[in-house]
Design a protein around this nucleic acid. Structure first.
Lengths: 120, 120
DNA sequence: TTGACAGTTGAATAAGTATTCACATATAAT
DNA sequence: ATTATATGTGAATACTTATTCAACTGTCAA
């Protein structure tokens, strides 16, 4: 994590480009949220969960079975995804059904998938 | 990381959904690449670098100045981004100019930015 | 009320990673 | 050749985090 503006150990080579870029940089908050968003997507287990939920809403046990993992592990990851606004859920009796939070999330995820499929 | 199909500790509740989802799951390789791609984007420093490169190609020192960080740190991150096919570079004398690798990367990144800006 | 099952959660361990430091390489200018 | 500058990189440290384990809550059925 950057500490302050004096951490840099070299000269400005292209002053105009540097000045202009600094002028256009959004605030720290946007970068933190953006990185956090991508970071949440950047885990094999979570990506698999999202791929499953991109097709059907599913309960915890079903997801655990699809991925061959423990309920606890899946529940932890779903909690992470929910707190990040990437999935939401609805309760029905003993079961909790999870789904992608909105169309926007769905779109970003699917473009990511296309990006990878496009590259091989 | 999942070990095998017997790691799951609960019953299948909705057999049709589970079977169908398993049938549609891509191979492990796609999930790993997809997660890796998002993971690389999921760091505040790298997101800032990409935001800068989304406007201009820039050399290492200029990026270090824009972010207020050391050359070494920036160089390490640029190496990570380059090995992942997210940025590319061209040499010019002593300097190395970095830029986003292609339009696809640019698009995914910008949609991510829109996603965050949309949410506040 | 008792048992069974779906899901959640805190703590601990194990694995991964960003930055720093010290040094190496490469190019240009004197 | 020598110096200065731009960049790359291996190792170490500090920090983060995914999964497991063990407990817990809540709901349904007998």
């Amino acid at each position: 994590m950057p500490k302050n503006e004096f951490t840099c150990d070299c000269n400005v080579i292209h002053k105009d480009v540097v000045d202009n870029t600094i002028k256009n940089m959004p605030n720290e908050d946007l970068f933190n949220k953006l990185a956090e968003f991508f970071k949440i997507l950047g885990d094999t287990t979570r990506v698999k969960i999202l791929f499953a939920l991109d097709q059907n809403e599913m309960c915890v046990c079903d997801i655990a079975n699809v991925l061959g993992m423990s309920k606890s592990s899946i529940s932890h990851q779903l909690g992470t995804l929910r707190r990040s606004g990437i999935v939401k859920c609805r309760k029905s009796g003993k079961e909790v059904f999870y789904m992608l939070d909105d169309e926007h999330v769905k779109q970003v995820f699917e473009i990511g998938v296309q990006h990878i499929e496009h590259r091989r």
